[in-house]
């Protein structure tokens, strides 16, 4: 089976810190760190009016499509793609193999500044993901599932459907 992704509090805090600093340094409105499966890890800045779950799944979708486009034209990858709007812009870039950084910015910032700051932050994010990967598979998460009872599973659906 596929490995599972586990995020622990320490790495979560470190990822959050890097993204918070990046928001400040790049004068961004908001920053999202997402995995390629469409799951959100960090959302910082003006995120209140954004449906972050939808955003994560769509960014992962457009990144997968962009990656196929790259291969189609003979590039290995387009590590950065950019969407320019009337007010807000979206800067999307790869972080290592499995993650995607999305920066939303307006006229208070610029593409040049965002690009520069993203590059620096990406190195730090990659380091954290490497540390996280080493920590995974140590079995720290095993307990959570071993305690689940059949009743727990049954109760999952009680109020939902």
């Amino acid at each position: 089976m596929n490995p599972r992704t586990v995020i622990f509090e320490e790495e979560q805090r470190r990822l959050q810190e890097v993204c918070t600093r990046l928001t400040r340094d790049s004068l961004a409105r908001a920053i999202f760190l997402i995995d390629k499966n469409g799951q959100i890890l960090v959302a910082v800045g003006e995120t209140a009016n954004i449906d972050t779950t939808s955003l994560a799944s769509l960014v992962a979708g457009t990144t997968a499509a962009t990656s196929s486009l790259a291969k189609l034209v003979g590039e290995e990858e387009f590590p950065v793609h950019f969407h320019e709007g009337k007010r807000d812009n979206l800067h999307i870039s790869l972080v290592g193999e499995d993650h995607i950084l999305t920066v939303i910015f307006d006229e208070r910032s610029s593409l040049g500044l965002v690009r520069l700051r993203v590059k620096k932050a990406t190195e730090k994010l990659v380091e954290i993901f490497v540390a996280l990967a080493e920590r995974q598979g140590l079995g720290e998460e095993a307990d959570l599932f071993s305690e689940i009872t059949d009743e727990d599973i049954e109760n999952l659906f009680s109020d939902t459907f």
């Binding site: 596929n2 599972r4 992704t5 995020i7 509090e9 979560q12 805090r13 995995d35 799951q39 998460e141």
Partner: peptide
């Protein structure tokens, strides 16, 4: 590949 976040205490399953 389930996604488990100990910080936000959530498990995400993709179907």
């Amino acid at each position: 590949m389930s996604f488990i976040n100990y910080s936000s205490r959530e498990i995400i399953l993709k179907i």
